[in-house]
């Protein structure tokens, strides 16, 4: 793949905006994805992830903003982008009434792949679909459908993959396999932008971005994203935590409480105030409390809550 410019970034877009009627679904989003990087795109449902991805791959024209994808201009060179990007839609979007082979063959023709037969056969083999080639795509289970979709969007050997919630509704085992596959692709130098809701997937990304109500709230490595919010977190152990959670929520310094099974995470930006509040609460209820490292999930829940409080309602 010969990219005209921007050898460093697979995706480099600035100030993207998109409106659907009155709704401002993407607001000033800027993203930079390095080549060979797995870039995780997180955010609640309806936050503008899909719209952003569609703008990056040339499906949608942004209302304003500019940038490049694989060095091609996202407004003027959409045809080039489509030819060099593999895009996997959120919903399975291959033809249910065609067999796996027919689907792959169709995609191969769309990209005018030379030696189509060989490309299709290779795709079937590497993804372990060889024995199911003649099965209709519609009869496949969720996991197999997703493998087929990945095989199809890899057929033309794209140097960038855009995956929109590829593992939604897929079982844990198939998810794990899928991510192993992604990581080996990244190791071969393929860049991946993947949107997801799963924390275990987020931690496997090299870089993350968090978007809510169309606004990009944080971007960087997992550690950078966590650090950017300046949260201190305490863990409180023991059963029957819900009463304590209700009580703590109203206390000074407590900005967020989340239960993970038997553990209650209490977070806040004022470390000293939070420390005093938690210590009092723990000792009065006879529970053990200790400071822990703020996790990615704490931060995401915090970000989600923060946008709902300020400005989020305007969306």
């Amino acid at each position: 793949m010969t990219a005209p410019a921007n050898a460093e970034f697979a995706i480099d877009v600035r100030g993207l905006n998109k409106h659907y009627g009155e709704k401002h679904v993407v607001r000033d989003v800027s993203l930079r994805v390095r080549r060979g990087e797995i870039f995780g795109f997180l955010g609640p449902n309806g936050s503008g992830k899909t719209t952003t991805i569609r703008m990056v791959c040339g499906l949608l024209k942004p209302d304003s903003g500019s940038g490049t994808c694989l060095g091609y201009d996202i407004v003027r060179e959409r045809a080039e982008i489509k030819r060099n990007v593999g895009y996997m839609t959120q919903r399975f979007s291959y033809w249910d009434d065609l067999s796996i082979i027919e689907n792959l063959d169709f995609v191969a023709r769309m990209y005018e792949i030379r030696d189509r037969k060989a490309a299709v056969r290779r795709a079937l083999e590497t993804l372990g679909l060889a024995s199911r080639g003649r099965q209709l795509a519609g009869s496949l289970s969720g996991g197999w459908k997703q493998r087929m979709a990945l095989a199809a969007c890899m057929l033309h050997e794209p140097s960038l993959l855009l995956l929109d919630e590829p593992t939604a509704g897929v079982d844990p085992r198939a998810r794990r396999d899928f991510w192993d596959e992604l990581q080996s692709l990244a190791a071969q130098g393929i860049s991946v932008l993947v949107s997801t809701h799963y924390m275990d997937e987020a931690v496997r990304c090299h870089k993350l971005a968090y978007i809510a109500y169309g606004k990009l709230l944080a971007q960087g490595t997992a550690a950078e994203v966590v650090a950017s919010q300046h949260l201190t977190t305490w863990a409180i152990y023991g059963g029957h935590l819900s009463e304590l959670q209700d009580e703590l929520r109203r206390k000074p310094g407590v900005e967020q409480t989340v239960t993970f099974g038997d553990v209650l995470h209490v977070s806040g930006t004022d470390a000293a105030l939070l420390g005093r509040t938690v210590a009092t609460a723990a000792s009065s209820s006879g529970r053990r409390a200790e400071p822990v490292e703020t996790g990615l999930e704490d931060v995401f829940i915090y970000l989600m809550g923060k946008t709902q409080d300020n400005g989020g309602g305007a969306a």
Binding site: L59, R83, T89, M110, Y111
Partner: peptide, 13 residues
């Protein structure tokens, strides 16, 4: 309706 149009449009066709 089946969402395959989006897939078609993302291809160079």
């Amino acid at each position: 309706e089946r969402g395959t149009m989006e897939n078609l449009l993302a291809m160079p066709v």
